[in-house]
């Protein structure tokens, strides 16, 4: 219990941020026309690829074989998420170009 309290008081700002972001995310999506749901889902998918930052940090700190192998794999997978996600979204959106 004590460590939970300590965690909350240490991370107050982050927790406030979480609450705000939850509402912001809902606000942003609420009024989107359903035609854009697929690209939006795909774009959001690319954005959570920001997890790659974590993988770069572990890869950058790696000082043993275990961390190197798993870190390398994590960066590769994270990059797939980011690059694949944005490129696929871009391709989908290319198709929404209004004619003339």
């Amino acid at each position: 219990m004590e460590s939970l309290f300590q965690f909350i008081s240490e991370n107050q700002l982050m927790i406030y941020l979480v609450i705000l972001m939850i509402f912001l995310g809902v606000e942003l999506i609420e009024k989107v026309p359903s035609v854009l749901h697929t690209p939006l889902m795909s774009g959001a998918n690319a954005i959570h690829g920001v997890i790659i930052i974590g993988s770069i940090i572990i890869m950058g700190q790696a000082d043993n074989t275990f961390a190197t192998i798993f870190g390398f794999l994590a960066v590769v997978l994270g990059t797939l998420n980011v690059v694949g996600g944005f490129v696929v979204t871009d391709r989908m959106l290319d198709m929404f170009k209004k004619k003339k």
Binding site: N11, M14, L17, V18, M21, I22, F23, L24, G25, V26, L28, I29, E30, H37, L40, M41, A44, N45, I47, H48, V50, I51, I53, G54, I57
Partner: peptide, 24 residues
């Protein structure tokens, strides 16, 4: 992950997608 590294941009992106994705 954002909490783990005290990294705000990870927290930001993650929660944003988490809540937007749930609503979607």
């Amino acid at each position: 992950g954002g909490f783990l590294y005290d990294n705000k941009v990870m927290l930001f992106g993650g929660i944003l997608v988490g809540s937007a994705g749930t609503l979607l």
